[in-house]
Amino acid sequence: MTTTVQDQDRQQQAAPATNAPIERSAAYYRLKADVEDFYYHEADLLDDRRFRDWLELLTDDISYFMPIRRNVKFGQQAARENTKRGEGISWFDEDKWTLTKRVEQILTGVHYAEEPLSRITHMVSNVQIKGARPQIDAARELDVTSRFLVYQNRVEYETYIFVGRRNDTLRLTDNGWKIARREILLEQNILLAKNLTTFF
């Protein structure tokens, strides 16, 4: 049984899209600078509490997903460590409708878990373009990985630090880059925060 799972694991690790690194050409670095800029802008919108503007950065068909991370036997990580998008229960498995609801809720002014508003800083780093379609010098869609550190301070003493990885698909639209797909891998098993009221 273990062998089967390990085999699956290797296969999944060898899955396409993220395997062959993109050549570090001038076009790559230009695009990477654009993407970083996009992320810094996104972080500004969230930290400045411009939540409606943040929603504008998401495509209408966005899939926003944060799995629950589980403690599993060696070799079963790919198959079982993370809950899956589209099945069962995760921390978030959202579309634009629920994300919009979350924003509307904060803006009611009586969402007590965010009233008064938390102070939040989003740090984004380790940005790498892992896939570009149709090609790097005329890309319309990108697979991008990054790391985040989100610091939240709430009311007086409540402080949370969320650290993890993001795997995004960005799409170029008439209004610039937008997020079409986001996977947020928070490096925690049991959630060590009372709430997840922020966006990642």
């Binding site: 978030f92 629920t98 609801k101 979350r102 969402h111 878990a113 009372k194 709430n195 997840l196 009221t197």
Partner: peptide
């Protein structure tokens, strides 16, 4: 998911 638990819009306010 949108109702319950720490990421649930309802129960965040309970916590």
């Amino acid at each position: 998911m949108r109702y319950s638990g720490p990421a649930g819009m309802t129960e965040q306010d309970d916590m």
